[in-house]
């Protein structure tokens, strides 16, 4: 754990390990690219960290490697092969871009809500092993840094770094704001859905809404809606 300080994308993908929590339902491998793309968009839009797409990403990484070999074997003297090679490589880059941006979005949320992510059971379970590792190291490093650079010269009573003062609203731990508004697209007919105690709305495929993130969280976890 201690040697994880230089964090590189390559190391990161190497260390993604066997599934910690199986995906809610299996995805058709053909859909992997589309699925990851949506997972990326969701992750960008959602205030909290979502479930890490372990299996999908593992399969994609294997496919990317395979495809890279295929591209290398294409004959550069044949015109058609050259075109194929360009197309294949373009797609490879596109997939890698999504993957990188997906991981970076997650890391940025981990950094922002570090203490919360580590202490909140359900959120913690949504991390990959490498992400958990990163969160722990990040937490340790920042705490130590604050302690060394100025907290140590303050009175003991002011040195705490994760105290909830008076109420949750004033907690030192930053948390995702679940009441944030999100735009979403309904991907299957859901029927009447209870938003709040006194609000029901009939959701049909293809509709677009603005909702409070909190009220559609479960639908997102069940993949019945897409965030946009």
């Amino acid at each position: 754990m201690a040697d994880d300080d230089d964090f590189k994308f390559a190391d990161y993908t190497d260390r993604i390990s066997a599934s910690r929590e199986p995906d809610v339902e299996a995805i058709d491998p053909v859909e992997d690219v589309a699925h990851l793309t949506q997972a990326w968009v969701d992750e960008r839009a959602a205030p909290e960290l979502l479930q890490y797409q372990e299996q999908c990403i593992q399969r994609l990484l294997a496919k990317v490697e395979e495809q890279t070999l295929v591209v290398e074997e294409l004959d550069p003297r044949n015109d058609t092969s050259v075109i194929l090679s360009i197309l294949y490589q373009t797609e490879l880059e596109r997939v890698k871009f999504v993957l990188r941006s997906y991981l970076r979005t997650r890391i940025s949320k981990i950094e922002r809500f570090c203490a919360y992510v580590l202490n909140d059971g359900p959120t913690r379970k949504r991390l990959s092993r490498a992400e958990l590792n990163y969160a722990e190291n990040y937490s340790r490093a920042t705490r130590q840094h604050y302690q060394n650079s100025f907290l140590s010269s303050l009175p003991q009573s002011l040195q705490s770094q994760d105290e909830a003062v008076f109420s949750r609203k004033l907690s030192m731990v930053s948390q995702p704001i679940l009441d944030e508004a999100v735009f979403c697209r309904i991907t299957e007919d859901i029927g009447d859905y209870q938003l709040d105690e006194d609000e029901t709305v009939e959701l049909e495929k293809g509709q677009i809404y603005i909702f409070k993130y909190r009220s559609v969280r479960t639908l997102l976890h069940k993949r019945q809606i897409h965030l946009i």
């Binding site: 508004a181 735009f183 938003l195 709040d196 609000e199 509709q207 603005i210 909702f211 009220s215 946009i228």
Partner: peptide
């Protein structure tokens, strides 16, 4: 609690997003 805007395009959403999400909140 919600607002429905069917048939709006993604780019169009993105234009109104900053203001709408803030106002909604």
């Amino acid at each position: 609690s919600y607002l429905q805007m069917d048939n709006i395009g993604l780019m169009e959403i993105n234009e109104i997003r900053p203001f709408f999400t803030k106002a909604f909140f």
